[in-house]
């Protein structure tokens, strides 16, 4: 699935970047993501993502790798993991870009990935909608955390 969003926050680009580059804190803004921690500074992080689709509960140990970083404006990362209980595999590439805008910062989010395994059989439409909800919530939390 692919989701792109742009949100404008009142915080300055440097403040927003500080939040994004604090990867455990940034990952914690993803709905359902907890236990975010650093494995190798600025290279690798880990988290656990829990989501529900109807009666189906997903719990994925995520490995987050920083692919590219251009401080203070752009970060590209890959998040991967597998829920062994239901056999679902998630793989996402996420690019975050900060640009000054109207005295604040425009954050653009590009999330591109797939869900494999039986959960993927629920249908692209359901997965896409879940992903869109998650990105919208993430954008809202980032905006709030950066301004607060």
């Amino acid at each position: 699935m692919r989701v792109t969003r742009e949100v404008v926050v009142t915080a300055a680009p440097t403040a927003l970047w500080a939040l994004l580059w604090d990867v455990p804190r940034m990952v914690a803004c993803v709905p359902g993501c907890t236990e975010a921690r650093e494995v190798e500074a600025q290279r690798r992080y880990a988290a656990r993502m829990r989501q529900k689709v109807g009666p189906i509960a997903l719990s994925v140990p995520l490995e987050v790798d920083i692919l590219e970083a251009e401080p203070p404006r752009r970060i590209a990362l890959r998040a991967r993991g597998r829920d062994p209980v239901i056999g679902a595999e998630i793989s996402m590439r996420v690019t975050l870009v900060c640009e000054p805008r109207d005295g604040g910062t425009a954050l653009s989010i590009d999330a591109d990935g797939q869900v494999l395994g039986k959960l993927g059989g629920l249908g692209h439409g359901v997965i896409q909608r879940k992903a869109e909800e998650a990105v919208d919530e993430f954008a809202a939390r980032i905006a709030s955390a950066a301004s607060g």
């Binding site: 009666p55 189906i56 209980v85 239901i86 056999g87 959960l119």
Partner: peptide, 20 residues
């Protein structure tokens, strides 16, 4: 616990291992 009536949807999910 999950509620069970006819099972025509639930048993399919159970067989697929999507709910346990």
């Amino acid at each position: 616990a999950m509620i069970y009536a006819g099972g025509t949807e639930l048993l399919i999910l159970l067989k697929a291992g999507l709910v346990r």
